Amino acid sequence: MMIQIGIIIVLTVFVLKGLFSFRLEKDDYSKSTDELRTEFQRKDFLLLFLFFILLPSFTVGLTILFDWLSDWSTSNDKSILHIIKPNIGTWIVMAMMSSLGYAVCSIFKISKWIFKTNESNYWTYYNRKYGFKATRLLKYLGIILVIFSSTLVCLNLNSYVKFKETKIEINEFKSFKPTEYKLESITKIIHFQKTVAPNGNIVQKPHYAIVFNDNYAWRTNDNLRTPNINDDKIFSFLTEKTGLKIEEIEIDQ
Results as ranks from 00 to 15, higher is better:
59 T>Y: 09
42 R>Y: 00
111 S>N: 15
161 V>N: 08
219 R>M: 13
115 F>D: 09
227 P>L: 02
84 I>E: 15
69 L>V: 01
219 R>E: 09
251 I>H: 10
130 Y>T: 08
168 I>M: 15
167 K>I: 06
126 Y>N: 13
102 Y>P: 00
77 D>T: 04
166 T>D: 13
172 E>G: 14
242 T>Q: 09
243 G>S: 05
199 N>Q: 12
229 I>H: 09
185 S>G: 08
213 N>H: 08
109 K>I: 06
194 K>R: 08
202 I>F: 00
224 L>C: 06
221 N>F: 07
18 G>R: 14
37 R>L: 06
187 T>N: 13
88 I>E: 05
48 L>K: 09
182 K>Y: 12
184 E>D: 14
25 E>M: 08
30 S>D: 14
43 K>L: 09
157 L>D: 05
219 R>I: 00
149 S>V: 02
126 Y>C: 02
144 I>N: 10
73 S>D: 09
224 L>G: 03
22 F>P: 01
163 F>V: 00
160 Y>I: 05
18 G>K: 15
201 N>S: 13
91 W>I: 01
243 G>F: 03
54 L>Y: 12
138 L>P: 01
16 L>Q: 06
68 W>I: 10
225 R>Q: 12
73 S>F: 00
140 Y>K: 09
43 K>H: 11
126 Y>Q: 09
41 Q>C: 03
151 T>S: 14
164 K>C: 04
171 N>E: 04
19 L>C: 02
14 F>K: 12
16 L>M: 09
106 S>L: 13
94 M>P: 00
152 L>F: 05
76 N>S: 11
191 H>S: 02
129 K>C: 10
233 K>H: 11
180 E>G: 02
26 K>Y: 09
10 V>T: 15
126 Y>F: 15
213 N>Q: 10
209 A>T: 02
241 K>E: 06
3 I>C: 09
120 S>W: 03
121 N>G: 05
94 M>Q: 10
72 W>R: 13
199 N>A: 13
43 K>M: 12
51 F>L: 14
237 F>I: 03
98 S>P: 08
94 M>S: 04
64 I>D: 15
40 F>V: 05
94 M>V: 00
26 K>Q: 14
134 A>Y: 02
3 I>N: 11
47 L>M: 12
128 R>A: 08
150 S>P: 07
129 K>Y: 12
25 E>L: 12
101 G>I: 11
163 F>E: 03
202 I>T: 04
31 K>C: 07
31 K>G: 05
55 L>H: 08
31 K>P: 03
253 Q>E: 12
223 N>G: 01
139 K>Q: 14
102 Y>R: 11
12 T>S: 10
76 N>R: 07
143 I>C: 07
82 H>Y: 15
209 A>F: 05
179 T>I: 13
167 K>L: 13
135 T>R: 07
134 A>L: 12
117 T>H: 13
120 S>T: 07
97 M>I: 10
201 N>T: 08
183 L>K: 08
150 S>C: 07
84 I>R: 15
98 S>N: 15
155 L>P: 02
208 Y>R: 06
218 W>D: 07
13 V>S: 14
239 T>A: 04
243 G>K: 05
55 L>D: 08
88 I>W: 02
33 T>F: 08
34 D>H: 04
12 T>M: 12
104 V>N: 11
